[in-house]
Design a protein around this nucleic acid. Structure first.
Lengths: 123, 123
DNA sequence: CAGTATCCCCTACGATACTG
DNA sequence: CAGTATCGTAGGGGATACTG
């Protein structure tokens, strides 16, 4: 059988793909990354920029992003100590993707809303 | 200081943005959408294409995608009944984004792996 | 074939309190 | 300031059984 797609996209989603995306497209990461793409920020600056996030979640999100190499944690040894988070070189490769996702949601939202209404009112 | 980015992206992530993305970038949706972009599929075809998904999760995923207007559910009234899922017009607007995400993960994965090792071995 | 219906677990997240 | 530590909960998802 020769009916495999001629120009196969070579994009099979594996468990690894999904795991990585899960760590970067999770509840808070996009917002953190988006902010850090604009400017390096300190811990409490991020909290203020993302008002609904809790300390715990922000810490967890930053650790995860740091572990995956998306964010650099820079400790400035003043007293009291200061910590700055910056997008990493690897992290910047995400910027276009994030922008594209945001643009997509913005453009698509109205149609989605209508689709939901249609779906919901079908008894 | 005039160093604000000249063409500001105007992309503030709101709760609505995140809610929509959560419904489309969740655990199984990408795989389902990816498959449906390639070809319309029946329920059990999807199960076979995505071996690890459970019936329950597949049903839930398809309903959610249908509700958001990404997928069309077409019932063919044969006996026993057949149901075909197809990507919708709205859904196809996601295709490039999904491809971009997959390409990004594929390209980035090795560096991420190295970053994780570095992070993990720092005691 | 294309699903519901249960039960159950686990963990992601929030709330709150405390610390170097 | 920049976090840990602890407790408690909601719900996403799995396993299994059943149905038009």
């Amino acid at each position: 059988m020769l009916e495999t797609t001629p120009a196969a996209p070579a994009t099979q989603i594996t468990a690894e793909h999904r795991e990585l995306l899960d760590q970067i497209l999770d509840k808070w990461s996009l917002q953190v990354l988006d902010r850090l793409c604009e400017q390096p920020s300190r811990f409490n600056e991020l909290r203020r920029a993302i008002p609904l996030i809790t300390q715990k979640s922000l810490t967890a999100t930053l650790r995860r992003l740091e572990r995956n190499g998306m964010v650099d944690r820079v400790v400035v040894n003043t007293r009291p100590l200061a910590v700055e988070y910056r997008i990493s070189a690897l992290g910047t490769t995400l910027q276009d993707l994030i922008d594209a996702l945001l643009r997509w949601t913005t453009v698509t939202m109205p149609e989605v809303e209508r689709a939901r209404e249609r779906f919901d009112e079908e008894t």
